[in-house]
Nucleic acid binder design. Sequence first.
DNA 1: CCGTATCCTCCTTGATACTG
DNA 2: CAGTATCAAGGAGGATACGG
Lengths: 115, 115
Amino acid sequence: MRTDLTDKPDNCMVEVAMEILGGRWKLAIVYKLLQGTHRFGELRREMHGITPRMLTRQLRELEEDAIVERMVYREVPPRVEYSLTETGKSLEEIVYLLDVWGRRYLDRATNPRKE
Amino acid sequence: MRTDLTDKPDNCMVEVAMEILGGRWKLAIVYKLLQGTHRFGELRREMHGITPRMLTRQLRELEEDAIVERMVYREVPPRVEYSLTETGKSLEEIVYLLDVWGRRYLDRATNPRKE
DNA sequence: CCGTATCCTCCTTGATACTG
DNA sequence: CAGTATCAAGGAGGATACGG
């Protein structure tokens, strides 16, 4: 499944980070959770197009990697809240910079200009 | 293949960025090129485990997305050099932070400690 | 409301051999 | 040296229906 993270020969930890954070949804979920705790259904609505199955899988993987915390309230109807761990919150600057970079990239791609 | 980047409904540009930079090798290649221009063979040797086919594909995609520049020298034997564009260089801080994050993450995973 | 169960497609990645 | 060609496997991601 995942290559052994401790078996990275040289000093490029970018590969380690991308192995945990890669994929289509992970960092977008972190982006949402940086704005505060969310319930399953809230995330589902805000993530335009994700299926419940996918959302569950991504959240479980993030939980295993200690990025996300899952809090279950045994009520009727059931309530489950997701939030970031400290490790998850430590991604704030990276996610922010990626957001900025993506916005600028899109601007350039949309109205290209000469150098 | 790729979803239309201009068709992202809300303000989460993280998805845009990950669509361009996601995958196993892209940011690791950027990491190497931040240290200077590289030839194909140099990258191949430094990227432990990448096949020439994969390296070619990743470099071509990065070239299409204007992250990487390809310079062909018509010599014998042939020489091709890869370097970052300005857009590529603008990833420096992100790549640096990902490297740091990955290193710290690995430390925590290797010698876990209680809070 | 918060998920699971099933079934499915196709992209990503890889191994190996070969070429200008 | 710098790639292509070919073949193959596996997993990421998706559609739909159902369960506690």
